[in-house]
Amino acid sequence: MEEPYLLTAREARILLLSKAGARVNLDLRKTNRSWLVTMRNGEFIFPDGTRVSRETLERIAGDEGSVYLVRNGVYKAAIAGEHFYKLVPTIPPTIEINGIRMHRTKGTNPLEDTRNKVNAIKPGEGETVLDTCMGLGYTAIEAAKRGAYVITVEKDPNVIALARVNPWGRELFRGGKVQVVQGDVYEIVKRFGDGSFDAVIHDPPRFSLAGQLYSESFYRELYRILKPGGRLFHYVGNPGKRYRKKDLQKGVMERLRKVGFTGIKRVEEALGVIARKPEKKK
């Protein structure tokens, strides 16, 4: 299947202002490349021959919060199922599930947010990393760029479907140093042998949606699969802290300590905590 062109309100407005078509970026600014969209009989013709009416472009131009796919038709990059999922045209894109963004975008962007998380454990050349909750895959891609071999797990097939059409995440599906596993990481982690990973990046959904991924039993599994000296970064965020004086990070740190992690401390810039499995005693 050929990859679709990606269209946002920005490109739609450029085309609507043109007299005979224009060159626009159609990969959510992953590259500086531009594609020629021509006009004929009042319709806009994309490079694959897809014809898009002015009325459709006007609708897209007014929708700042969505991404549209163009390939033999025009479709919103969204999926309605048990939840409502859509790509959001931040650069790089984030994903919304029921209106909740899966990356920090206020005062930062998904790429900077990802780098802060990966910097917390500094994966190195030849190391093996578990990325527990893939999302759009930026964490796995960033760790692989630093030389690590990454296994990334995603429970939701709808999230994987949107990751596949996102130009910023296509490295996930091209082989190389990233292996994508679909399934519930709470169960999948039990399949890994003791000491399988040099590092774990744990960036779960919020506690109210996936409380089991903040449990002592899950942390015990993460401890088991890490090599002695292995590092853990756990994104926690600060939900509730501002309004209810609730410190979720403190509870996470206490449970990590209980299962055996040491060197546990907060990483403010990444809104999470780091911890280490002790080295073997000589």
Results as ranks from 00 to 15, higher is better:
M1I: 15
E3P: 02
P4R: 08
P4S: 06
T8Y: 11
E11K: 11
A12R: 06
I14H: 05
L15A: 04
L16F: 07
L17S: 14
G21I: 05
A22W: 03
A22Y: 02
V24P: 07
D27V: 03
D27S: 01
K30C: 00
K30Y: 05
T31C: 00
N32Q: 06
S34I: 07
L36T: 13
T38M: 07
M39F: 00
R40Q: 08
G42M: 04
F46N: 04
F46M: 05
D48T: 06
E55T: 08
I60H: 10
E64R: 15
V74N: 03
K76W: 04
A78R: 09
G81P: 00
K86D: 14
L87R: 02
P89S: 13
T90W: 11
T90P: 02
P93C: 07
T94G: 10
T94N: 04
E96H: 04
M102E: 13
E112H: 01
E112V: 04
D113T: 02
T114G: 10
R115A: 00
N116E: 15
V118L: 05
N119K: 11
G124P: 07
E127S: 10
D131K: 14
D131F: 08
T132S: 15
C133M: 10
G135Y: 00
G137D: 04
I141V: 10
A143V: 08
A144P: 07
K145L: 11
A148G: 12
V150K: 13
K155H: 01
N158S: 07
N158C: 02
N158D: 12
V159W: 04
V159T: 09
A163M: 01
K177F: 11
V178M: 06
Q182V: 08
V185P: 01
I188Y: 14
R191Q: 14
R191C: 00
F192T: 14
I201D: 12
I201N: 12
H202G: 12
D203V: 12
F207G: 01
A210V: 01
L213K: 09
E216Y: 06
E216F: 03
R220W: 05
Y223L: 15
R224T: 10
I225Q: 11
I225N: 11
K227D: 11
F233L: 04
F233P: 03
Y235L: 08
G237Y: 08
N238K: 14
N238D: 10
G240H: 04
R242G: 15
R242V: 02
Y243M: 06
G260A: 14
E268H: 02
V273T: 11
I274W: 09
P278C: 12
K281P: 02
